[in-house]
C-alpha cells in the first residue's frame, strides 16, 4: 500500500492505482470524459487534470499512478482555471441546441459546464460543420457534437473488436469516422450500440428513442437479454409503461455492459402491433377472440378427452425456468413424459 495526500486528506491505495481511484476512495469528485474503467486509459480529454506538488504541469488523474508521498490538489485555482478553460474551449466548438438535444439531463459537457459555471464560451471562432449520418436504422451520428474523447473508438476496437471507427485528420479537423469517411452502413460496424452507451455527449443517439423521453423521466429496470445463451445484462429504460431505450448493464457480471445489436436495438418487438392480446379459438378455420375462461375451459375439456400418453408438450428455451418447470410438471402430472423443447436446434 502506498499513501498520498489529496486536498489535505491522507489515503492509502494499492500500488498501480491512479490518482483518480485514490480520490474516489476519499469520495472526492473529479470530472472525466474519456475515462472508462473497462479500458486502458489514454488521457485524452484532460478534464480530469489535477495539481501534483513538484510536478511541472498539471497531470491527468485518470492515468497517472498514485505515488507514495504524493501531494495532490483537485480543486486549486490552477486546476479550476484549466477545467474552465478546457470546458470553454469545448463549448466554443459545440452546437448549443441543448433545449432539444436528446442528451440533455445526462450530458457530461452540460453537467460540468453547470458545475464550473461556464455559461458561454470566451473563444468564439470556427465550428465544425459535418453532415449528420443517419443512414443506418439504429443510431444517428452527429459529429458536430463530438468532443473527441475517443471512447467510442476504443470501445469499438478494444471491446468489440470491430474497429469500425477511427480518428482521421489532424488538429482542429480531427474527426471520428468509419474508414474512408463512409456512412456507418458500409463500415465494419456491427451496431452493437456500445459506443452509443459510452458517448458522454449527444453525438451518438439511438434512433428509437428520439423525442420519447427525457433521461430523468426514465425508470431503469435491470434484466437479462431474451436472445442468445450468453445471458447479457440489459437495462431497460421505461417511460409510461413503454421500453423507450436499452443499454448494457454495467453491473452484470457476465456482460459488464457489453451488448450486441439484438439486445441493444432489437427489443422493440415488445410494442409490435402484432402482439397477441387475447386468447383465440379457431372455429371453421378462422380465429375468433375469446375469453380466458372459455379458452382454458376448452383446453381442459380437450385434455380430459385424451389418454395421458397421448399428450405431448413442447416447452420453450425462451421461457423462464419457472415456466418450464411448471410446464413439465403439468404434462407429467397428466401422466405423460413427452415434454421437450428445441435444445437441439
Amino acid at each position: 500500500m502506498l499513501s498520498l495526500t489529496i486536498n489535505g486528506h491522507e489515503v492509502k491505495v494499492e500500488p498501480g492505482s491512479t490518482i483518480l481511484q485514490a480520490a474516489e476512495k476519499l469520495g472526492i469528485f473529479i470530472p472525466t470524459f474519456c475515462y472508462d474503467p473497462q479500458l486502458a486509459q489514454v488521457g485524452a480529454c484532460r478534464i480530469c487534470v489535477v495539481e501534483v506538488e513538484k510536478a511541472r504541469a498539471l497531470v491527468a488523474s485518470c492515468c497517472t499512478p498514485a505515488a507514495d508521498g504524493m501531494i495532490v490538489h483537485t480543486d486549486s485555482e490552477r486546476v479550476l482555471a484549466a477545467r474552465q478553460a478546457n470546458l470553454s474551449l469545448l463549448l466554443a466548438n459545440h452546437p448549443l441546441d441543448c433545449l432539444t438535444c436528446e442528451k440533455t439531463g445526462e450530458c457530461k459537457l452540460q453537467d460540468y459546464c453547470y458545475l464550473y459555471g461556464v455559461d458561454e464560451s470566451d473563444f468564439v471562432g470556427a465550428q465544425k460543420d459535418y453532415d449528420l449520418d443517419d443512414t443506418n436504422p439504429f443510431y444517428i451520428r452527429d459529429m458536430n457534437k463530438c468532443i473527441l474523447c475517443g471512447l467510442c473508438v476504443r470501445i469499438c476496437y478494444d471491446v468489440n473488436g470491430a474497429g469500425a471507427i477511427e480518428f482521421i485528420n489532424r488538429g482542429f479537423d480531427s474527426k471520428v469516422t468509419p474508414a474512408f469517411d463512409d456512412p456507418m452502413e458500409y463500415s465494419s460496424c456491427v451496431f452493437c450500440g456500445m459506443c452509443v452507451d459510452s458517448c458522454p455527449v449527444g453525438a451518438l443517439i439511438p434512433k428509437e428513442s428520439i423525442r420519447q423521453a427525457r433521461p430523468w423521466e426514465l425508470k431503469s429496470v435491470k434484466t437479462i437479454c431474451p436472445y442468445c445463451g450468453t445471458g447479457c445484462g440489459l437495462e431497460l429504460l421505461v417511460k409510461d409503461n413503454k421500453v423507450v431505450k436499452v443499454r448494457g448493464d454495467l453491473s452484470n457480471p457476465v456482460s459488464r455492459g457489453q451488448t450486441c445489436v439484438k439486445g441493444h436495438f432489437g427489443i422493440d418487438f415488445l410494442d409490435s402491433p402484432d402482439r397477441l392480446k387475447t386468447p383465440l379459438v379457431k372455429k371453421n378455420g378462422e380465429f375468433r377472440e375469446t375469453t380466458w375462461e372459455d379458452a382454458l375451459e376448452l383446453v381442459a375439456a380437450k385434455l380430459k378427452e385424451v389418454k395421458p400418453t397421448e399428450v405431448a408438450g413442447l416447452a420453450s428455451a425462451r421461457a423462464t425456468n419457472e415456466e418450464n418447470y411448471l410446464f413439465q410438471k403439468l404434462i407429467r402430472s397428466l401422466g405423460s413424459n413427452s415434454v421437450d423443447h428445441c435444445a437441439r436446434l
Binding site: A44, L148, R170
Partner: peptide
Amino acid sequence: QNESCGKCTPCREGTKR
C-alpha cells in the same frame, strides 16, 4: 495547429483559438 494530433482538448481546440 495543423500538426496537433487532435487527441487532447487543450491542444486541439486551444491552438485553433
